[in-house]
Design a protein around this nucleic acid. Structure first.
Lengths: 125, 125
DNA sequence: AACCTGTCTTGACGTTCGTCTAAGCAGACG
DNA sequence: CGTCTGCTTAGACGAACGTCAAGACAGGTT
């Protein structure tokens, strides 16, 4: 619980954000909100949401930038910038293997976010 | 943002759209990404994340602005602006009853977001 | 009626974001 | 070695965001 071994971690939300009780169950403390909001913000762009999905759903669990870039009408640097945003949010992890750079999803944070948004399936409305 | 200049009046998928397959299971289409990204963006601010939680976890399912505002070191108009952002994202609903305005969470969209972020617990890593 | 309280809107300010072009680095290959 | 390709970084610019002070509106109270 100290820290996840990772190449370039900028966010250390495992420190003060023990996995979250659902948003609708207990009021989220300011510290937890400050730690998790950047992750939501990173997903708050259509391009990054698609990038995240393409990476997380890729075969073998990783996607090459060379496969991601041509899927959008954006320049290479712009895609690289979005990937950096996802990386700094702790949502993905990058690794260079030879010529290409591969991105892999980090399920831990995704699970935290999903748990936070979970609402009980109460049929009442 | 991307090259979208649409007015984005209100999200329509809050009605009862079939809940999206998880992000990590199938690649999110551009349309879905464009529709859901604003919701994530709305949650991408610590203040709004706390507001969302305070509303969703409130007794009776609704919270009065008069209870929300003093919880932050921000002015009334600023809180009102954040609430408007949550409202326009389809995450909450407002209703005026007499002097006070009450906000209530919309579980449908929250469930969609949670489902999108769901990752299988058997994911290696 | 006039007043007061609570909330929202407006207009403005500085900061951050998304995008681009141009330049820099890291490997691969002739 | 030189050069080419793939990806990132640096700098710039317009748009959007977060915040506030001031004004406007709705509803209750006197």
């Amino acid at each position: 619980m100290s820290k996840q071994a990772a190449p370039l971690p900028r966010l250390d939300l495992t420190a003060d954000a023990p996995c979250c009780p659902p948003l609708a169950q207990r009021r989220v403390p300011a510290g937890t909100a400050a730690a998790l909001a950047p992750a939501f913000k990173a997903l708050g762009d259509p391009v990054r949401l698609q990038l995240m999905s393409m990476i997380a759903s890729a075969d073998g669990g990783e996607a090459c930038v060379c496969d991601l870039t041509p899927a959008f009408d954006l320049t290479g640097p712009t895609i690289s910038h979005h990937l950096k945003t996802l990386r700094e949010a702790g949502l993905v992890d990058a690794e260079r293997r030879g010529t290409w750079v591969y991105y892999r999803a980090r399920p831990a944070l995704l699970r935290q976010l999903a748990a936070l948004l979970t609402v009980e399936p109460t049929a009442a409305s």
